[in-house]
């Protein structure tokens, strides 16, 4: 019984791959670089490379091809000065009865945290955010980054200690 091979060159297949992976790769790159512009560019380049090489990449390998290209592309990029992560804080509930001071303190804390995350080393930030934002296990992170679970734990530990240092007691 011969299995019908799925060609990445087919528009439908390519679109499916984009739907399945583009956003995940984009988020991963955001966490890694803390720079959404850069993440956008790299995602675009990775998928363009996949399209150009569609005849050489089998469907099953497309995902790892994309991650590999994304990782390599990132290495080639000249590191621009880090911009702060542009995550939006969840909108405050309008009916809250919290005092304005409390709200301001809250905002200040979130800004501080945001900046502290931006200032983490890339390798610590990617581990920390993949774990906290994507709820990935250390094992899953280790697979994505192609490092050991022990190394993931180590980076996680350092990320937490560094964040703690830049957020004084409130």
């Amino acid at each position: 019984m011969t299995k019908k091979t799925v060609s990445v060159c087919e528009e439908k297949v390519y679109e499916q791959l984009y739907h399945d992976h583009a956003e995940k790769i984009y988020r991963y790159l955001c966490y890694r670089y803390g720079d959404i512009e850069k993440a956008h560019d790299i995602v675009q380049d990775s998928f363009a490379k996949l399209w150009v090489n569609c005849s050489k990449v089998i469907f099953e390998a497309a995902k790892s091809f994309l991650y590999k290209v994304a990782n390599n592309a990132s290495l080639n990029e000249i590191r621009s000065q880090k911009t702060m992560l542009k995550y939006q804080a969840t909108t405050q509930k309008t009916y809250t009865n919290e005092s304005p001071e409390f709200q301001m303190e809250e905002k200040e804390f979130m800004d501080r945290l945001n900046r502290a995350i931006s200032n983490l080393k890339d390798r610590q930030r990617e581990v920390f955010l993949l774990s906290r934002m994507e709820k990935k296990t250390y094992r899953e992170i280790a697979e994505i980054l192609d490092i050991s679970v022990k190394a993931v734990e180590k980076r996680m530990q350092l990320a937490l200690l560094n964040l703690r240092k830049s957020i004084p007691n409130i």
């Binding site: 988020r27 995550y87 804080a89 969840t90 979130m110 945290l113 945001n114 934002m133 957020i167 007691n169």
Partner: peptide, 15 residues
């Protein structure tokens, strides 16, 4: 302090 940090992170949106 760590709890605060983690709770704060929870409030960020995914990009």
């Amino acid at each position: 302090a760590y709890k605060d940090i983690l709770n704060g992170v929870e409030r960020f949106d995914q990009p």
